[in-house]
């Protein structure tokens, strides 16, 4: 199924969890925050939150700034 991750269309397996999505992109969960359709998914929910086709996912991290 297709989901939108950080503005890019990505193909993922049906029933992929947020945790599995992060694994797919080799992203450490401790350094990011995730939104699914504008709702924050807490770290504790990563493994239990399954994506649905068309979901809009944002994965953010901290970067240098002032």
């Amino acid at each position: 199924m297709e989901v939108v991750v950080n503005g890019e269309i990505k193909e993922v397996a049906d029933g992929t969890s947020v945790q599995e999505l992060l694994d797919q992109f080799q992203i450490k969960p401790v350094r990011v925050a995730v939104e699914r359709n504008r709702e924050i998914v807490t770290r504790k929910q990563f493994a239990n939150t399954r994506l649905a086709a068309g979901d809009n996912i944002e994965i953010v991290t901290f970067v240098g700034g002032g």
Binding site: N6, G7, F62
Partner: peptide, 20 residues
């Protein structure tokens, strides 16, 4: 120290290092 929030890179993660 103050830090900004931005999209995580999905590809080309430079050496995998995070500012933290």
């Amino acid at each position: 120290v103050t830090v900004a929030v931005r999209r995580e890179r999905l590809v080309d993660k430079t050496s995998g290092r995070n500012i933290l």
